[in-house]
Design a protein around this nucleic acid. Structure first.
Lengths: 105, 105
DNA sequence: CCAATATATAACCAATTGGTTATATGTCAA
DNA sequence: TTGACATATAACCAATTGGTTATATATTGG
């Protein structure tokens, strides 16, 4: 099952997978490089990468025996847009704080 | 002490729980009212509510035999701020640039 | 060709998840 | 006081999760 699909929210619910995405935020990386950041085994990392791939959050590029992974941030928009509908709850509260501070002067 | 702690990402990874939060976005609601929106049983809903409570995402108010649930959106800032660090990928349209460069190969 | 390297997959396991039904607890109304 | 209602918890179950070790598959260098 490649391409679009599997649940993005489930994919990012695991802290190791969020850490992987964070590592890929600025650079492509090969698996063995990513692995150095974790204490679990190489197969465990491969399983996380597969889940991220199936959620469309990362993409793979083959180069010899290396696999370069890179972020596909587009799929995170689903998360951003869901949580974005709640943003007013803290921005409003900050506005209220601002108003309160104004009134106190 | 409000049991702050339990993983917010895990709590919102379930679509039913996101739907509950969405229902609470504008109004407080009692359990039996929430229940009308779902096809699973009342105990299943109570379990979801407990998980949301333990993640600090909702709060409970007792009123006779009713339990009013209300959103505590503050805990969603953890999600918002994590995903916010990826926002530049679509606001700056770097993803389109990447796609364009790929197509030019 | 062969051994080493990089990564993925298979097979397995314990813990967790999300549902169920049955029951407990607390409150209200008659 | 009793019975219905609102909600939570208990006990149970199958499916999924996240890890493990062992193995498979490609690729490269000597």
């Amino acid at each position: 099952m490649s391409g679009v699909g599997a649940d993005v929210f489930a994919a990012v619910s695991d802290p190791a997978r969020r850490a992987i995405l964070d590592l890929l935020r600025d650079n492509e990386r090969v698996v063995s490089d990513l692995l150095r950041s974790f204490s679990f085994s190489q197969p465990a990392l491969s399983k996380h990468l597969r889940i991220l791939r199936e959620a469309g959050l990362v993409e793979q590029r083959k180069d010899g025996r290396l696999r370069w992974y890179r972020l596909n941030a587009a799929r995170l928009r689903e998360v951003a847009s869901w949580v974005g509908r709640y943003e007013r709850f803290w921005t409003e509260r900050l506005d209220q704080l601002g108003t309160l501070l104004d009134e106190m002067e």
